[in-house]
């Protein structure tokens, strides 16, 4: 049961009158304005504090930043607020403190959909494709905001993930787990983002597919796209990271380059299993 009386459906799940499949979980927020901000890192969520709805704070004074063209990775134990930190940067929860800035603009007040034209793209951990639409339509929807010719970008995505070209007329929901992740990343790339944010892209895929995905992510970063990623497989992720953040209970515990964190005995002992 929810505190919000409008959300109290009394447990009704009558399929003849209600359609819960594909319902959004993103909170509504009034449309705000972006404001110019001083110089700083390319993307930063600074001193973020907040939680979902009116619930308790999950993030406590948490700061995540990443420079242009770099790969930043957020790791940490279960329930540390890794995904929440990422969602906060994308505006998917109301911050009670702190700010989010990108490329010299303060975008704290913007809704998630208003952050897309600012050059941010987000790949959620689950439900990250339009299952009933074809692969090609998925990519088209990724480029929804663009009014120019999208065929070059689509070719680039097919170049990055060749299997998608063969399956482009197939419904995305019929693909395998690894292929779905490729569609998800491809959809996000279609906006030609400045920042690509990935929430556990390797969750539930086999080790071989995982290595392949990491390779593609490095390739994307080399093309000049900044990457912010949450990962369960901390060791592999830190190996490719320019910058790593270890979160514990919604706050920064350790920060450094990927190599530094891998070398840090404290980090190794507590998070990387020796």
């Amino acid at each position: 049961m929810s505190d919000n009386p409008y959300q109290d459906g009394r447990g009704n799940k009558d399929a003849s009158i209600t359609n819960r499949a594909g319902m959004g979980q993103i909170e509504y927020r009034p449309e705000g304005e972006a404001r110019p901000a001083g110089p700083g890192p390319f993307l930063i969520g600074e001193a973020m504090t907040g939680g979902y709805g009116t619930g308790a704070n999950i993030l406590n004074d948490c700061t995540i930043s990443v420079e242009k063209g770099e790969i930043a990775v957020i790791v940490g134990p279960n329930g540390a607020g890794k995904s929440t930190a990422m969602k906060a940067i994308f505006g998917m929860l109301n911050l009670r403190g702190g700010s989010v800035r990108i490329d010299g603009e303060d975008i704290t007040a913007l809704s998630p959909q208003a952050r897309v034209p600012k050059g941010m793209a987000f790949v959620p951990q689950t439900s990250n494709i339009f299952t009933s639409m074809t692969v090609e339509e998925n990519l088209e929807m990724g480029a929804f905001l663009r009014r120019d010719d999208i065929s070059t970008t689509m070719e680039q995505v097919y170049g990055l993930f060749p299997i998608l070209r063969d399956k482009r007329q197939q419904a995305a929901g019929e693909l395998s787990g690894g292929q779905r992740q490729q569609v998800a990343v491809g959809r996000a790339l279609m906006t030609q983002p400045k920042v690509l944010m990935l929430d556990e892209p390797t969750a539930g895929v086999s080790p071989i597919v995982m290595d392949e995905l990491f390779d593609r992510i490095i390739e994307v970063a080399r093309a000049g796209i900044t990457i912010l990623m949450v990962e369960q497989n901390a060791r592999q992720a830190l190996e490719i990271a320019d910058k790593g953040y270890v979160l514990v209970q919604g706050a920064n515990a350790f920060t450094g380059t990927g190599a530094e964190l891998l070398a840090d005995p404290e980090v190794r002992r507590t998070f990387l299993g020796g």
Binding site: G22, M23, P112, Q113, P117, G142
Partner: peptide, 12 residues
């Protein structure tokens, strides 16, 4: 209709 949240994230 398929995925409201993802539609939002695509700028729809």
């Amino acid at each position: 209709s398929d995925n409201e949240a993802l539609a939002l994230l695509s700028g729809i």
